[in-house]
Nucleic acid binder design. Sequence first.
DNA 1: ATGTCTTTGTGAACGCGTGCACAAAGATGG
DNA 2: CCATCTTTGTGCACGCGTTCACAAAGACAT
Lengths: 273, 273
Amino acid sequence: MATGRTHRPATRSRGIPEATVARLPLYLRALTALSERSVPTVSSEELATAAGVNSAKLRKDFSYLGSYGTRGVGYDVEYLVYQISRELGLTQDWPVVIVGIGNLGAALANYGGFASRGFRVAALIDADPAMAGKPVAGIPVQHTDELEKIITDNGVSIGVIATPAGAAQQVCDRLVAAGITSILNFAPTVLSVPDGVDVRKVDLSIELQILAFHEQRKAGEEASAPEEAAGAVPPPPVAPHRARPGAPGAPGAPGADSGRQGPDGDVPAVMPA
Amino acid sequence: MATGRTHRPATRSRGIPEATVARLPLYLRALTALSERSVPTVSSEELATAAGVNSAKLRKDFSYLGSYGTRGVGYDVEYLVYQISRELGLTQDWPVVIVGIGNLGAALANYGGFASRGFRVAALIDADPAMAGKPVAGIPVQHTDELEKIITDNGVSIGVIATPAGAAQQVCDRLVAAGITSILNFAPTVLSVPDGVDVRKVDLSIELQILAFHEQRKAGEEASAPEEAAGAVPPPPVAPHRARPGAPGAPGAPGADSGRQGPDGDVPAVMPA
DNA sequence: ATGTCTTTGTGAACGCGTGCACAAAGATGG
DNA sequence: CCATCTTTGTGCACGCGTTCACAAAGACAT
């Protein structure tokens, strides 16, 4: 999963647990597929399999929405599609703006999954004057100067940030000041926002790093049990206290030291992102 | 957050909780920034603020890695960067393949955050013969036919799927058969994989839907407390049992029925994604 | 109408993650 | 060497999320 939330941690949303809310789109997608195949009803078991969860969880999730099933039969597909759509707020139109029309921003603008769920790309915004007027995904890019006007004119409340990390916080501040209350952030930065503004984060490199962790673990344990071989045991944590200028106690940190290498013999590679 | 894991749910990874693992990249990023500014040490409080978490959580997370801090002083930045990098497996080189070079795939290929963390884009793969040979981000796209060969020749263990939903499972199966054991999936589908293969999912439209849910809630509660006004109360769940052909008890499902509309008077808008 | 069979809805137990609060460790100054 | 002050590391309690397991509800056949 590619998410981290900066939500109001405590406030339970109208009794529907956050974890359940996060799964509703999953159920909705599975139900929509069934609906297209004109399947009238599904059991919790079938639907759970299609959504990739276990059936007890699914039933409990649905129980927060109400008693929409029929015992002995299952759930009416069309009815449930509607109920979940309504609960998620997809029965209304959500204009969104995308800020930062680079490779990623352009890809997002072209992404079909947005428009198909009631999300309408109201505007594309970029700081580069050379981009202004140029159409991306059929929508002309507008300059950052117009940001506030665009948001208020279109009544936009959801913003997508796809700028470089350095510009993200500044863009975020302007979005919030202009009235945006929900932000989907693709820039690799921690955004700080006032209370009442929701931020969700999608970080591509973090996902890969998590995979790498597990991958390393797999590789390590298949090479027999006590794989403490290639530099797995850290040097004893001797008093660090500013170990910078080649101090004797300095552990093999990357860059300065030679020795320490991965099994493949490559440099540690740590850089901004 | 944009993630859902299809991990082995029970198996705790060498004592490091999954939630902690997911935060390590966050800490690493903050630490790297400090390192670039040549800051020698940080307190848990400072680092926690930079990473957007609370300091107790950060200290507990680090305690799973070992006792790398110095009481009264804080953490040595360089040392910690190295330790976290090593724990995440970033001290070695991870070749990855990206399958599906559409808008999103191309954006991923160009994304700097990959290369900068030890992830090397070993190959770009697409099913379209017209794409073959065309360079994207300086790397020539190769045809799907080469998939197995590319993976085995380069010893790739991490694959990124950026294909349309329809092709994802098939691509996934081929990747797994070829030896891939970690998959980052951008296609809006549930992938089924054998045990031992990790899948992480990044779903752009799901993130927006979650935001929409909270957004709707905000809008609803600011319009005074008992906002049960515009169609919030569902019709009583009368026995559905295949209520399809205009049966009398059929609730206001979208498409068939008229009535039932959002406050904005728009159609429910539910489609594939 | 009655019985059987299927499937939902949920009470209860369990486990993980979070946050508090404090004791221990060590640095720093006298 | 001792006192003070800062900051880590962690024991503990709490709450959320997951899963089990089963009673209740209803469909369906007879």
